[in-house]
């Protein structure tokens, strides 16, 4: 079971969270987004085999969405933050 560091609550067991998907896709502007923009946002994924930015909902905790940078091969978590935060690359 993963252990996820919620930026608001601290380290918590994965059971408290609900996976909320890829954080990489940018939502098109509601007013100006085109069909193509929405197609790419809704359906297409980079699906990298390596570091993946993703959202988790602390659904049994603070109920905030958090951003997690995780290696999807090793499940190692590099960094976590608010959805708008820039996360560390783990290079250091």
């Amino acid at each position: 079971m993963l252990e996820i560091n919620c930026p608001y609550c601290g380290k918590r067991a994965q059971k408290e969270f609900t996976y909320a998907g890829d954080a990489g896709a940018e939502r098109p502007n509601l007013e100006t987004g085109t069909n193509q923009d929405w197609f790419e946002f809704v359906y297409l994924r980079n699906n990298p085999r390596g570091l993946h930015d993703e959202l988790w909902h602390h659904s049994a905790g603070c109920r905030r969405l958090i951003k997690v940078r995780r290696d999807v091969v090793t499940h190692e978590i590099i960094d976590t933050g608010a959805p708008s935060d820039s996360l560390s690359t783990g290079a250091s």
Partner: peptide, 13 residues
């Protein structure tokens, strides 16, 4: 397990 993974291994829950 519900999260993206290429790991061929899962978790206990």
């Amino acid at each position: 397990d519900l999260y993206n993974s290429y790991a061929q291994r899962g978790n206990f829950p």
